[in-house]
């Protein structure tokens, strides 16, 4: 009984802010709305059929690709960064980790607007490239998928670095020495010991980056300029502009479905490399 009381606030929070909205979305996805956005209380699969339209599927695919590339780049940049931080003398580590999360303390929109300034045709990047003679005419960096990826990467990279840092820091250096002692070259040690043992951390980071990237609609709008439409933009438009709530719900569910698959995959993989096997 006492334990239930302790659980109370958390359960309430989860129910009101998480389970109820999801239940609502699932419920609405089986309804239909008229032109004015009013829901008709009749169970139908019409919205699911509409969601299979190649137009929507393509947006979904684009979103997955963009979020995927962002995640991949985050791993490639985050891994050496986390590694370098873990190798710093202890008193410097905290300082650098704080620097890594520092951008989170400023406003998200302000940070994104800064990228608009940077990537602008009149902006410093284009200017410098022209100055050194690498390109001749001003470069259109803004309003491209690349700009969207840069924005997402910038926003969520810390979420990759932190779990990776924890995983690398926890790795006993003697394990790497033992591998070399047994005849493994440095590259082999990385592939057979370091990588598998830090993989769970990388997977957590990947989920942390992929999830908010996939559903993001602010960055695609500001840096993609409406040309790169992601599933998040679509869902928001369906909810707020077109007011087709059932279709919006189905699209939202498709993201949830993808995330669920990813989480299952992540727990499977992590378990495989966890110290204790559960088979």
């Amino acid at each position: 009984m006492g334990r239930l009381l302790l659980l109370g606030p958390g359960l309430l929070y989860l129910t009101v802010l998480f389970l109820l909205p999801i239940a609502a979305i699932v419920g609405i996805s089986f309804l239909e709305s008229n032109r004015f956005g009013q829901l008709r209380w009749e169970v139908t699969f019409a919205s699911f059929e509409r969601a299979l339209d190649p137009l929507y599927l393509r947006v979904l695919a684009t979103s997955v690709v963009i979020a995927g590339i962002t995640t991949l780049l985050a791993v490639l940049i985050g891994y050496p960064t986390a590694w370098a931080i873990a190798r710093l003398p202890p008193r410097w580590r905290l300082v650098v980790l704080i620097l890594v999360v520092l951008p989170f303390w400023t406003n998200f929109l302000v940070r994104t607007y800064a990228w608009i300034v940077l990537l602008n045709t009149e902006g410093p990047i284009s200017g410098v490239l022209q100055g050194v003679g690498l390109i001749e005419s001003p470069l259109q960096l803004l309003y491209t998928p690349g700009a969207v990826i840069a924005g997402l990467l910038y926003a969520y990279l810390p979420l990759m670095i932190l779990p990776l840092y924890v995983a690398i820091d926890r790795l006993d250096p003697e394990l790497r020495e033992a591998a070399r002692d047994l005849g493994a070259s440095r590259a082999r040690v990385f592939l057979t010991v370091t990588l598998p043992m830090t993989l769970p951390g990388a997977l957590v980071g990947a989920i942390f980056v992929f999830v908010p990237s996939l559903g993001n609609f602010v960055i695609p709008e500001l840096l993609g300029g409406g040309k790169t439409v992601m599933i998040g933009n679509l869902i928001r438009d369906q909810f707020l502009k077109t007011r087709n709530w059932p279709l919006a719900s189905v699209l939202a569910l498709s993201i949830l479905g993808i995330l669920l698959v990813l989480l299952i995959l992540q727990s499977r993989l992590s378990r495989r490399y966890a110290p204790v096997s559960h088979d």
Binding site: D172, E174, L175, E177, A178, A179, R180, D181, L182, G183, A184, S185, T192, V193, P196, M197, Y273, A274, P275, S277
Partner: peptide, 28 residues
């Protein structure tokens, strides 16, 4: 170290936690 005909048994054992006993021993 990897080219020395010498092997070290670590004070902490340093067994690879993500491998079975068999795979640990086969590693070298």
């Amino acid at each position: 170290p990897e080219r020395r005909p010498v092997n070290l048994m670590f004070q902490s054992y340093a067994l690879f936690p993500h491998m079975s006993v068999e795979r640990n021993v086969a590693y070298g």
